[in-house]
Simulated assay, not measured.
Amino acid sequence: MTSARSQTRSTPSTVRATSVSTATLTVQTSGCGFIDLTAEAARFIADVHARDGALTLFIRHTSASLTIQENADPSVLVDLTTVLSRLAPDDEDAGWTHDTEGPDDMPAHVKTMLTGTSLQVPVLGGALALGTWQAIYLIEHRTHPHRREVVLQFVGG
């Protein structure tokens, strides 16, 4: 158990939400894998002259997802891909009944359910408040290339 003495909190700050800015990012994937969206998210924040608030990212698909993960060691993404494949295998013997778009379709839906379709990142002083080793990723769960849309929306001042 952690004692209250080992915790600290900064003084709260308040920002009136004076703007809502929205854009759609189109991403062409090349099949299964992670695509780093951090630079595009940061560029959007700069383009809308955001200072303090929140950036929401929402992917408009059910067979691809979003996550925040480590960006320093590429083997992390390899291991995450492996664990998702173990949890929702693409093989035809897995027992999936939904296979309208191929044997990788239902596993892609399961992987999306496990990882999520939206993220929210605080924006402080005009920058994404990500940790040192964090990056924003789109995860393509389908075997073949797809065109994906991610809605970016900043709310703040």
Rank of each mutant, 00 (worst) to 15 (best):
K111L: 07
T38N: 01
G95R: 05
L37H: 03
H49C: 03
L130G: 02
V110C: 10
H49L: 08
P103Y: 12
G31T: 02
T56I: 11
R147Y: 06
F34N: 02
T14V: 11
I59Y: 00
V123Q: 08
T24N: 05
H98Q: 09
E140A: 06
I35Q: 12
R16E: 15
E70T: 00
E40T: 05
V155Y: 13
S63T: 12
T62L: 00
T81C: 03
G53P: 13
V121C: 02
L152N: 04
A54P: 10
S10D: 15
T2Y: 14
E40M: 12
W96V: 03
Q120R: 08
F44N: 04
H109K: 06
T82E: 15
V20H: 13
F58T: 00
A50P: 15
L25N: 03
N71C: 05
I139E: 11
T14D: 11
E70V: 00
R86T: 01
T26L: 07
G131P: 13
A42I: 10
T24Q: 06
R148T: 08
T8W: 12
N71V: 08
V123M: 11
E92W: 06
T67E: 04
D99R: 15
Q69R: 08
A4G: 02
T14A: 01
H98I: 04
T11S: 11
G125Q: 09
M106Y: 06
Q134Y: 07
V83G: 01
S13D: 14
V150L: 04
H146V: 08
V27M: 06
A88C: 05
R5P: 09
E101V: 01
G33M: 06
T115P: 15
Q7A: 00
G31L: 04
T117N: 15
L128H: 03
D73R: 05
L25A: 00
F58M: 06
R147E: 14
Q28I: 04
R16V: 06
G31M: 05
V110H: 10
A54I: 13
T112S: 10
N71S: 06
V15H: 11
C32H: 06
T14W: 14
V110M: 13
V78R: 00
S3L: 09
D93E: 14
T82P: 02
D99K: 14
N71M: 03
L57P: 11
E70H: 04
L57S: 01
S3R: 09
W96I: 02
C32S: 05
D99G: 06
A17P: 09
W133D: 12
A72F: 05
R51P: 07
I35A: 00
T38H: 03
D90Q: 05
T14R: 04
A4R: 13
R86C: 01
A17Y: 10
T100L: 15
T115E: 13
E140D: 11
L25H: 07
